[in-house]
Simulated scan of single mutants.
Amino acid sequence: MNYEDLNCTMNGSVLVIELNRPAKRNAMRLSLREELIDALTTAEQNDDVTGIVVTGAGDKAFSAGADLSELQQRTVESEMSRTAELRRRLPALTETLAKPVVAAVNGACLGAGLEFALACTVRVASTTAKFGMPEVLLGVIPGSGGTQRLTRTVGLGWSLHLTLEGKPIDAQQAYRIGLVTGLSAPEDLLSDAVALAETMGGQPRMAFLTARDAINRSLDLDLNAGIDLERKLFALCLSTGEPQQLAAAMLERLSTKTTGNGNTADPVLQSG
């Protein structure tokens, strides 16, 4: 499908979605969010797609935030409307998608752009990227889940620092505080992100979904409730029959290997 604000291309089994408003530093307007929802939903339903990478067009920005011309038109009434719910629906869809979504942050990732990136499965960045929540400088606060997802990602202290100061941090600092999990040279960022999406997307589907959901839910549950959820999700994985088949295949491979002294290698326990 052709989009006005997105470029979509396949790289092997990975769909690369490029936010394509470079003249506006890939600002998030309503139509771009609508197109992202459509592209992500379509990719989820396409069996040829195993993973997704989202990045920004040009070398200046992943997304510099909300479109300011739209922000000028917002009112109390419009903010409580169904249209405004779209801004919450996009990240909610992204973080629950049945396939991994890797944010390849190639430049400025600010405000609404960071709120979207926080909903992706993981974030990797160019060494030239910058991250920030500048909404307070405009007299508002993050409005698409930023106060909640940022805190869950980097902790209370850094969430307060970034949100209340309003100034961006560089990619190295973002890596140190866990906002991103990998740094790449600008010319390597996309290929590194595609490789990561390909690896995650190649995992057994039920294992990917249950592991991701157990980790995300861990922030909302006490320890015992979280462990109970983990136990039930582990059992759900077993119900597919795939773990038993994979364990049998691994045992078969191990049985053909020998240790240095000629003895058959002992099977290694691979799960909890």
Rank of each mutant, 00 (worst) to 15 (best):
N2G: 12
Y3N: 08
N7L: 13
C8A: 14
V16K: 04
E18W: 06
P22E: 04
L30W: 14
S31T: 15
R33H: 10
E34Q: 15
E35Y: 00
L36E: 12
I37P: 01
I37Y: 01
L40H: 00
T41E: 07
A43V: 11
T50S: 14
G51E: 15
G51I: 13
G51H: 15
G51C: 13
I52V: 10
T55M: 12
A57P: 11
G58F: 07
S63H: 04
G65C: 02
L71A: 01
Q73D: 05
R74L: 10
E77T: 15
S78T: 14
S81N: 13
A84D: 11
A84V: 03
R87I: 10
R87A: 13
T96A: 07
L97Q: 12
K99P: 01
P100Y: 02
V102H: 14
A104S: 14
N106E: 04
L110R: 10
G111V: 01
A112I: 08
A119H: 12
V122T: 11
R123Q: 02
R123N: 01
A125K: 04
S126K: 05
S126W: 05
T128P: 08
K130T: 15
M133I: 15
P134A: 05
P134T: 01
I141A: 10
I141L: 13
I141E: 12
S144K: 02
S144P: 02
Q148W: 01
T151N: 07
G155L: 06
G157M: 08
H161T: 08
L162H: 02
L164C: 15
K167N: 08
K167F: 13
P168I: 00
Q172F: 10
T181L: 04
S184K: 11
S184T: 11
L190W: 01
L190A: 06
S191L: 01
A193H: 05
E198F: 07
P204K: 11
T210D: 02
A214W: 03
I215M: 13
I215R: 10
N216H: 14
N216F: 13
R217N: 07
L219A: 15
D220P: 03
G226I: 05
D228E: 15
L233H: 08
L233C: 08
L236T: 00
L238S: 12
T240R: 06
G241N: 13
E242R: 13
A248P: 06
E252I: 09
R253Y: 13
L254A: 10
T259M: 07
T259V: 05
N263S: 05
T264A: 04
T264G: 01
S271W: 12
S271V: 12
G272W: 15
